[in-house]
Simulated assay, not measured.
Amino acid sequence: MSDEHRTAALPEVAVDRVGVVAGDVTLLAPTTTHVDAGEVLVVRGHNGAGKSTLLKVLAGVRAPSSGSVTIGGAPVSRRDRMFRRRVSALLGAPPTAPDLTVEDHVRMVAATWFDDRGAAEQSAAAALGELGLEGLLRRFPHELSSGQQQLFTLALSLARPFDVLILDEPEQRLDAEHVERVGETLDRRRSAGVAVVIATHSQALTSQLADRELDLDRRP
């Protein structure tokens, strides 16, 4: 079955009774949800409710103790290049090279994933421009303010191709103006058919983006 027919029939992201336990500690109680292409799911809950754990399971960096997850109809596997191509995730500050500038980093990420050099350059420039980083291209990451660093890491996640975007608290360290800008950027990805999953404490971002909410504090 083609990707087109598969994604038309199935959610882009499907989570079926996924739970995570470490020893005697429940990190994520059994959770079921789904995200369609062109939809934003906002995950809410108090600290420790399991938001980050759920996102790590979706991104394939943590295995569930129970239940199952599929992305594009296929099981989650970081060893599968197609899975890695489908999913872009920001789950914390990524490692950076001290001798590469902001622009160097973003262009390198884009070049890793695009076969066409022109497409890679265009995608990198678009990500930097959308987030207002044009004036910071020649700076090194350690020279950025905390808010600028957050926008830079978002640009790294947006510069590459993906069908599913997973973001853990993308509003961190951003003022209200930049939170709105991030929301507008993510809304454009939704309009392009991307399935977006965001864990956030921001009511402003939730109001701006959420097609559906998953509140981990209110599960039955």
Results as ranks from 00 to 15, higher is better:
Arg219Trp: 01
Arg81Trp: 11
Leu91Ile: 11
Pro75Tyr: 03
Ala210Ser: 13
Ala97Ser: 11
His105Ile: 00
Thr26Lys: 01
Gln172Asn: 13
Phe140Lys: 10
Ala204Met: 10
Val40Pro: 05
Arg181Ala: 13
Glu213Ile: 13
Arg85Trp: 15
Arg44Trp: 07
Pro170Ala: 00
Phe152Ala: 01
Lys51Ile: 03
Leu209Gly: 01
Asp99Ala: 13
Gly193Lys: 15
Ala111Phe: 10
Asp115Pro: 04
Ala204Thr: 12
Thr112Ile: 10
Arg117Cys: 04
Gln150Tyr: 04
Asp3His: 14
Glu184Ile: 03
Val197Arg: 02
Glu180Leu: 06
Ala110Glu: 04
Val164Lys: 14
Ser66Tyr: 10
Glu143Phe: 04
Met82Gly: 14
Asp175Gln: 06
Val25Pro: 08
Arg138Asp: 08
Leu165Ser: 04
Val164Gln: 02
Asp24Thr: 15
Ala93Met: 12
Thr185Pro: 04
Arg212Ser: 06
Arg212Pro: 05
Arg160Gln: 14
Gln172Val: 03
Ser202Phe: 04
Thr53Gln: 00
Gln148Asp: 15
Ser65Pro: 09
Asp217Arg: 12
Arg81Gly: 06
Val109Ala: 09
Met82Arg: 12
Ala176Ile: 12
Ser207Asn: 12
Gly60Ser: 05
Thr96Glu: 02
Leu133Thr: 04
Arg138Glu: 11
Leu131Thr: 00
Ser77Ala: 13
Gly72Leu: 09
Val87Cys: 14
Ser146Glu: 15
His34Asn: 13
Gly135Pro: 02
Asp217Trp: 09
